[in-house]
Write a protein that binds this DNA or RNA. Sequence first.
DNA 1: GATGAATGAGTATTCATTCAT
DNA 2: GATGAATGAATACTCATTCAT
Lengths: 210, 210, 210, 210
Amino acid sequence: MTSLKGKKNRPRIIKPVQKRSIETRNRIINAAKKLFAEKGFDDTNTNLIASQSGLSIGSVYAHFTNKWEIFHTILENFSLEVFEYLKESINDITKDRITLNEAIELLVHGLYKAHMLNGQLNAEIAKFILKDPEAGKIRSAWEQKMNREIIRLIAHFGSHVKIENVEIGITVVHRSAHEVFQYLYKNKDQVDEKAILKEFITMLQRYLNG
Amino acid sequence: MTSLKGKKNRPRIIKPVQKRSIETRNRIINAAKKLFAEKGFDDTNTNLIASQSGLSIGSVYAHFTNKWEIFHTILENFSLEVFEYLKESINDITKDRITLNEAIELLVHGLYKAHMLNGQLNAEIAKFILKDPEAGKIRSAWEQKMNREIIRLIAHFGSHVKIENVEIGITVVHRSAHEVFQYLYKNKDQVDEKAILKEFITMLQRYLNG
Amino acid sequence: MTSLKGKKNRPRIIKPVQKRSIETRNRIINAAKKLFAEKGFDDTNTNLIASQSGLSIGSVYAHFTNKWEIFHTILENFSLEVFEYLKESINDITKDRITLNEAIELLVHGLYKAHMLNGQLNAEIAKFILKDPEAGKIRSAWEQKMNREIIRLIAHFGSHVKIENVEIGITVVHRSAHEVFQYLYKNKDQVDEKAILKEFITMLQRYLNG
Amino acid sequence: MTSLKGKKNRPRIIKPVQKRSIETRNRIINAAKKLFAEKGFDDTNTNLIASQSGLSIGSVYAHFTNKWEIFHTILENFSLEVFEYLKESINDITKDRITLNEAIELLVHGLYKAHMLNGQLNAEIAKFILKDPEAGKIRSAWEQKMNREIIRLIAHFGSHVKIENVEIGITVVHRSAHEVFQYLYKNKDQVDEKAILKEFITMLQRYLNG
DNA sequence: GATGAATGAGTATTCATTCAT
DNA sequence: GATGAATGAATACTCATTCAT
């Protein structure tokens, strides 16, 4: 592991105020995102990120303090996307007059699809979080935001939801969902995808309906 | 050796038949297990394993072909332990006349305790599996054996268990449990451990009771 | 990198376009050439090459993929030099009106002197070629170029040269010369250098004159 | 290179007086000879020699001080064989009433065939000699013995042989032959074996006939 | 602001040889 | 005499990061 320890004081990281600067930053992020998803964090070296961005390694380090920070940024962006997706889904659901069970099904399927679109990146994030506490915090923060949205959804269904401690219940569900999705991503060719999703949904429905 | 001609001769790995040999092997495994749990696989270098075993690096490589194989061995041993623990727990449960809900509670608590005893090693295994397919296979094999035990337990409760597809249901439960335990291990200081476990158990009970 | 997933990303090798870069490359080559000649390929480690170049090991590997590639480069450079020397010698010979026998004598003496200037390197190359087919190919290619020059010389003497198969004859002569020179280099203190050269020249003269 | 330098004082090497001991020694030598020829000196490790001999590594080191010494022994044995072969060939030749040219042809063909039978071992010896002066001495000694035999042959043809300095002439011929044979061994599939041998023989014939 | 050449600590693995049993 | 477990020095190569130009 290339640890973060022992950083020297690094000089001015470019703050992306100028248009050009923002674009450069994005080029780096996009190249890195692709590479991290394809080859993983460890197998993607910074020089490769630079060359894939069409930039010099020096430029990369002018925009980011280190490789880790690049990943953190990607993690932030990605989490934001997922969050927005969840928020909109919940907005849609609360607008329509649908049952709790239908809502659960819709939400799980939607999030599953979203997960699969970035399955490899999700896998890489999972791996990364296990070795970088900083990343863990970032994800935690976003999960809390997402939890709040889900709480909003549950509030919508009011007393139909029979959980003692909603917040905690959601955490449990959230984590389970994540792991089941990840499992499906890794094994989608060897297992019955639909059946697993269906059982998972059943579990949630029975749980939430009390 | 500096010759280009391929195929290094894998040196003959000692087969631990003699007493001394077995003991040496165990010393390596124990030292490595401790180090992997404390520092992680990547931050544990082979020289450290050797010195912590009180052996030379040469000895380590006389007993294992590489660092990965040491981990695989630890993973095997550890999986066996967990399996045996699960098996005995299920044996105990099926002997007594207890309800399904009680059984779920007992089992989850038991496995959770077992998980916590080796929390850090579990975390390391999780990380390792993500990057080593070989390890993934090892774990899969053991999980299947464990699933079979759990199916045995469910059979014991017969028609009380209302799952459509038992095998798949167990996979879902298994993965969820793993992730929830891991989550608790990582955050045990910041969250309400008991409450989370309780909700998780509730989820399972509602699920299995239909 | 400790991941199992294959294909290390071969780091981008610097293409020496800039002045500084070319100079660095040359420093490495010169240091390595000296070391290879003095201590041999196997006893010259890469760190030594770096330090003797006044560079870091990283720099060495930024300019060459391998220790072997360093040798290949030296071999190429050296072969070119010898080739140019041969070519010029033959040019000189064909300009003057000298006899075949005189030409043989001149050429052998010239090549012998050239060989002796880099005797140790020649020895090392010989050793190296025996274990590296790649190097063998490089040398073969250069020997063919040299053979073509010698054929040119022989053509100059036209029907005075009584060899059935010129190309093959030259190969035989070439290999013999190489070995005799190498023998002399190794044993120059214990044998009568001049006498051996003289006999060798006699052999060639008798052979070529038919 | 695993150098000879820094040998500690080694205890009693078994002197093979007893039958069993001699047999053990031979088992080691035969296994090593095969391995050296197949894989080369560097790629043959001592443990492999031991296991191929059906002996323990300890036994190997009870009979030989070194890996090098094993090779030296093989070199001695092999040189003796070649010597005996040459001697007998020359005996045969001198018995019959054949011409000098016929003798040359017979001898070259005979030695070439002998060389090819052990081509790989010959290549390995060549490589080895380049890095081990000790081996060089061993070979030199045998070459001198062989030279003496050849001188005997030449004496047989008396004044038909027109070499100024017989001893030196033979050295030149000997070295050339060795290199040409080696060249043929390495390239036998890409070149016209017969044509090369024929030219070589022609060269020798013209040389010796003056 | 940008470049990319240079840095150098860090690491898995091999194998001839020893010596306690 | 034999065994084979243990030794440990030695070495090629990577890659995140810096900084002179």
